[in-house]
């Protein structure tokens, strides 16, 4: 006997992601999902973003890592509420994990939650986690072919940060090519050239995020 089913396989993740979205809508919270390879500069960028955005918003951070507390400790030192989410080997964060972790925050005291996803260019892109915006980081030393090789990440992100721009002269990194490939995958992508070391380019990114945040949350 044949039974017709037609059910989305990742439906539970979508449902859960929508539930988080509803909660954040009510609580007036904006969520930023930061994704990129191991070592691309996710934590460095988040630290720099906190320093700017905390002038305007109450920030909290969820640090995703397969193991360890290293990144969370860096954020804690800045006196920012942070919870480390260890995935015990899993290569991405799912919405369910975010939902479970929200109880550790006082949501009435938060305007913006920044999530550092697992260092991985592949499957974090397949899982919505209730975010309002996706920021993909590609650092210059990783090479200018990564957008081409990992299209899903870049076709689902609103913002692409080309990080470690201070190192551009040491690498054959064709940023025009990256830009044109990224635009073909994702015509509306916003691209920023940033150094989290010299802070070059950071202002433009902060302003773009501020505009996006202010569109959603009422202060």
């Amino acid at each position: 006997m044949e039974i017709k089913v037609v059910k989305q396989i990742l439906e539970w993740n979508e449902d859960c992601s929508n539930e988080i979205k509803d909660t954040f809508e009510k609580k007036n919270i904006y969520m930023i999902n930061v994704m990129g390879s191991p070592g691309a500069g996710k934590t460095s960028l988040i630290v720099n973003l906190i320093n700017e955005l905390r002038k305007y918003y109450k920030i909290a951070v969820i640090e995703g890592d397969i193991a360890g507390q290293i990144d969370a400790e860096k954020i804690k030192k800045m006196d920012i509420p942070v919870v480390q989410l260890n995935t015990d080997g899993a290569c991405h964060i799912e919405a369910m994990s975010i939902k479970h972790i929200l109880q550790y925050f006082n949501l009435d005291e938060i305007d913006v939650i920044i999530v550092e996803n697992i260092g991985n260019l592949v499957c974090p892109a397949e899982f919505n986690i209730g975010e309002d915006i996706r920021v993909a980081i590609l650092s210059i030393p990783e090479g200018d072919d990564k957008v081409e090789k990992y299209p899903l990440m870049f076709s689902t992100s609103e913002i692409l940060v080309l990080n470690k721009y201070d190192m551009k002269s040491y690498f054959d990194f064709d940023d025009k090519k990256v830009e044109s490939v990224a635009r073909e995958l994702n015509p509306n992508i916003n691209i920023f050239r940033v150094s989290n070391k010299t802070k070059e380019g950071l202002n433009e990114l902060v302003n773009a995020l501020k505009n996006a945040i202010d569109k959603k949350i009422k202060k």
């Binding site: 006997m1 044949e2 039974i3 017709k4 089913v5 037609v6 059910k7 989305q8 396989i9 990742l10």
Partner: peptide
């Protein structure tokens, strides 16, 4: 990405 149908006994 979905389950379309099942063939069962």
């Amino acid at each position: 990405f979905y389950v379309d149908s099942l063939e069962v006994d």
